[in-house]
């Protein structure tokens, strides 16, 4: 205690902190004294001698500190067990910092570390506790992700509905087309976009559908690229502006550019010329104004609409059975049977 007091006098900053801690202690003491008097635990404030109240205050500080750590961990993880472990983690951090501070103070003042640590008691508790609380909190924050998942032991909290929607995959681009993706076309005659499309003076009425960034075109095989017939309603689901040119109840023949097995839906390159010339397609717009919003685009088509129209060979892939499938059979006495 003497060593600490001496160093506090020598170091203005340390003295400031000591003063701050004393102020905090007095404030807490006052707050504690009011209910004690009110509930009859002490008749007057004067009954609360410093020798009695100091240990109570120290205990209160410990409790507050533990609650603070638990609250931080609990708010981050929303899990009571993690909150409790967060309190423990906070205290561990606190004592590590406490030790480091002791080393720092003792080296600055030329005092033995043990003396410094022993001297950091009494009124300096408030200072120490506050410093540890701040430091511990700062150290805890980087563990936010760990806390959220309970150090990998619990599930992450459910995202808000808006966040969930934002993370949903969509073909629709959220920004204007940047041109970083080059669309590969396989049949020049069938896939050339209408000339008017390139010179379209206005932006499309709907976002142009683009393949996902991780899109990998399947290596084309014979007969894969071709035309498939899908209900007009499927086209309209992706391309509402085709409404004037299609009759919903009739199938439309479109060009199937790629199949993406990794996705639920296949991806096809819709050529507007095909719409116009489709059996169910309507008449091509007569003037350029009507044609302005028409662009060739990617459309999503569930495989259920085209798998029967694509040669089965396309879906045959080379399969190499794993080693455990080639192990010799083991004689068994029985197997599970439905008996009830």
């Amino acid at each position: 205690m003497a060593a600490t007091s001496q160093s506090a006098e020598q170091e203005p900053m340390f003295g400031l902190m000591q003063g701050f801690s004393m102020g905090t202690l007095l404030l807490l003491g006052g707050l504690l004294a009011v209910p004690m008097v009110k509930f009859g635990w002490a008749r007057t404030i004067s009954d609360l001698a410093p020798t009695t109240i100091i240990p109570l205050l120290v205990g209160l500080l410990w409790l507050l500190e533990a609650i603070a750590y638990a609250l931080i961990a609990g708010l981050l993880s929303r899990n009571i067990l993690v909150a409790l472990s967060g309190a423990v983690l906070g205290f561990i951090t606190r004592f590590i910092v406490f030790l480091l501070m002791g080393v720092l103070v003792s080296s600055q003042n030329g005092v033995e570390l043990s003396d410094t640590l022993m001297g950091m008691d009494g009124p300096s508790w408030a200072y120490r506790a506050l410093a540890m609380l701040v430091t511990g909190t700062m150290l805890l924050l980087p563990f936010r992700r760990m806390l959220q998942t309970g150090y990998g032991l619990i599930d992450a909290p459910a995202p808000s509905p808006s966040a969930s929607r934002a993370k949903q995959f969509s073909f629709a681009s959220k920004a204007p087309r940047t041109g970083h993706y080059q669309i590969v076309r396989s049949a020049p005659t069938a896939q050339t976009a209408p000339a008017t499309t390139a010179a379209a003076p206005t932006a499309p009425r709907h976002p142009v559908i683009q393949p996902p960034e991780n899109f990998t075109p399947v290596i084309p095989r014979d007969n894969v690229f071709g035309t498939v017939s899908v209900p007009a309603s499927v086209i309209l689901a992706s391309v509402p502006e085709a409404q004037p040119f299609l009759e919903a109840d009739k199938p439309v023949t479109i060009h199937l550019a790629y199949l993406v097995p990794q996705l639920q839906r296949g991806t096809a390159w819709l050529i507007w010329q095909q719409i116009f010339s489709a059996p169910g397609g309507g008449a091509r717009p007569a003037n350029e104004q009507a044609d302005a919003g028409v662009r060739d685009r990617w459309v999503k088509i569930s495989p259920k609409y085209f798998i029967t129209q694509v040669p089965r060979e396309y879906f045959e892939i080379q399969r190499i059975p794993p080693a455990w499938m080639r192990l010799p059979a083991v004689p068994q006495e029985s197997q599970f049977d439905d008996v009830e």
């Binding site: 097995p261 495989p303 259920k304 798998i307 879906f315 059975p321």
Partner: peptide
């Protein structure tokens, strides 16, 4: 409204288990 087995095999069963 179900997918044929051969299509599910194509999607999922790359090792032919």
């Amino acid at each position: 409204d179900i997918a044929p087995v051969w299509y599910m095999e194509y999607l999922l069963n790359a090792r032919g288990v």
